[in-house]
Each structure stands twice: as structure tokens, then as C-alpha cells.
């Protein structure tokens, strides 16, 4: 059987909210090392992956590896029944067709349990090659969210370039053009408020803003985000979930024919 108890249950809610619009039906792979998911979006343009480590849970038990087929929209509806300070416990039998979720209030004076019907989902695992990044940027996740949101009001696509000057995001549309350049900083009070840029070679890539905006739904999970750019390859946008794991998004570029 599988059983996992998460004191900070709101993280599960935030994680599901961060991926449910891109991926609707997904498999969660459970093993004694934790919970993993990898899924393409419906249009097969991006790949979403998360990992929740067993040691990030208050209690984690998995007797043998399980695959849980989950409709994320339905799971999100169930998680709406949990309070923001609730402790969440998930349980599934080895051959069961439901995932039981239990929400306990902080004072443990209110307990909700819900059974979510599981489904059989065919999915393919993609191999993500080890990439030698051209440029790696770490920035506040609120900054990333603002850049992709602001540029979406100008155009549908963004050119992202890394040069000695910094990381430049450029959008072009019917109403005009906009450029946002981020330079490396070191003066912020907190380390995570700084922008860090590590560039190995200049790089310029074009992406659909719609997806980059969707990735920003993970903003509540982490105060920082890492953006990895590699020549002619998908961009990788990483949110580390403190003491628990990560959610990573990969988006294929737009390429001139």
C-alpha cells in the first residue's frame, strides 16, 4: 500500500494548480523514493515533470511501486475542500482503483476524507538528455511572472536572448514592441531576490508566451525560478519546492523553417 502524510498540505494544492491546465490526465509514479510525474501537454509542445521526495513528507510508505492514473481537474476539485493549513494524507491500496485523501485541520478537530476514482492512462516517458546550457538565470519567481504577463499584452511570442548585457525578453505585436532586460544583481537584502546570470555562450531563442505564462502558475510554490536556455533546444523553467522536490517545465522553441 501507499500512504503519505504532508503537514504543509497546501503545497499539494499549489502543485496541482500549477500543472492542471497543461496536463489533464496523468500518471503519478509512486516508489519508496517518492512521487514522480512526467507528462506532455495536450498539444505536445511542452513537458511537465515533478518530483516529491519521500523524505519531504512527514510520513511516507510505499510497499511496492504503484502507478496512479489521475484526472488533475478532479483532484483539484477535491483539494478545494481542504483548508490552507490542513495536513493532507494520501492513501492507495496496491490494486485499488481509488486514491483516498484525508484533510485534517491544524487542531485536528475537523477531518474530511474523499475517495478519488483512479483511471487507466496510457502515457509515454520521454528521455530528457543531459544538456550543456548556454545560459542559466535565477530570478525571483514574481519577476518571471511579471515579465511573461507584461509581454503577453504586446505579442504572442517572445525572443529571449542572453548576452554580456544580461537576459533580454522581446515581444512584438500589432501595437508595437517591448523589451525587458534583466541584469545581474547582488544588492538585494535577501539572496533569493537577486538575479543571477551564468552565461557560457550567447543564445537567442523564440517561444510562445502562452506556455511561459502557464508555467508562472507555479509561482506560489517557490520564491525563485531558474530558466535554462540552450541553443536550438527547449527552454527549461524550474521551481524548487523547499524541502520537498521540484516542478520543471520544458517548452519547445519556435524555429525558422
Amino acid at each position: 500500500m501507499f500512504e503519505a502524510r504532508l503537514i504543509q498540505g497546501s503545497l499539494l494544492k499549489k502543485l496541482v494548480d500549477a500543472i492542471k491546465e497543461l496536463c489533464t490526465e496523468v500518471n503519478w509514479d509512486i516508489s519508496n523514493s517518492g512521487i514522480n510525474m512526467q507528462s506532455m501537454d495536450g498539444s505536445h509542445v511542452c513537458l511537465v515533470a515533478f518530483n516529491l521526495r519521500a523524505d519531504g513528507f512527514d510520513h511516507f510508505r510505499c510497499d511496492r511501486p504503484l502507478t496512479l492514473g489521475i484526472n488533475l481537474g478532479n483532484l483539484a476539485k477535491i483539494l478545494k475542500c481542504s483548508g490552507s493549513n490542513d495536513i493532507i494524507t494520501m492513501k492507495a491500496d496496491d490494486n485499488g482503483d481509488t486514491l483516498t485523501l484525508m484533510f485534517e485541520s491544524e487542531k485536528q478537530d475537523r477531518i474530511t476524507d474523499v475517495d478519488l476514482k483512479l483511471m487507466s492512462i496510457e502515457s509515454e516517458h520521454l528521455g530528457i538528455p543531459d544538456q550543456d546550457y548556454s545560459a542559466e538565470t535565477s530570478m525571483p519567481s514574481s519577476e518571471y511572472q511579471r515579465i511573461v504577463r507584461d509581454l503577453s499584452s504586446i505579442g504572442d511570442t517572445v525572443n529571449i536572448s542572453a548576452t554580456k548585457e544580461g537576459i533580454k525578453f522581446s515581444a512584438m505585436g500589432d501595437i508595437g514592441t517591448a523589451n525587458i532586460t534583466l541584469r545581474q544583481t547582488s544588492s538585494a537584502d535577501k539572496e533569493e531576490e537577486n538575479v543571477k546570470i551564468e552565461m557560457k555562450e550567447p543564445v537567442l531563442l523564440t517561444f510562445a508566451l502562452r506556455y511561459l505564462n502557464n508555467f508562472a502558475k507555479a509561482t506560489p510554490l517557490s520564491s525563485t525560478v531558474q530558466v535554462f536556455l540552450t541553443k536550438d533546444l527547449p527552454v527549461q523553467v524550474n521551481y524548487n519546492i523547499q524541502d520537498l522536490g521540484y516542478v520543471k517545465y520544458y517548452l519547445a522553441p519556435k524555429i525558422e523553417e
Binding site: 509542445v45 509515454e124 520521454l126 504572442d156 519547445a252 519556435k254 525558422e256 523553417e257
Partner: peptide, 14 residues
């Protein structure tokens, strides 16, 4: 602005 590539053109099936 270029053609949107699919993610599977970069990451192969395992």
C-alpha cells in the same frame, strides 16, 4: 515568428 516545434522532436521516447 518561426514554426512551433513539438517537444518530441527534442526528447525521445524512453
Amino acid at each position: 515568428a518561426g514554426a512551433q516545434k513539438g517537444i518530441m522532436s527534442f526528447f525521445g521516447k524512453k
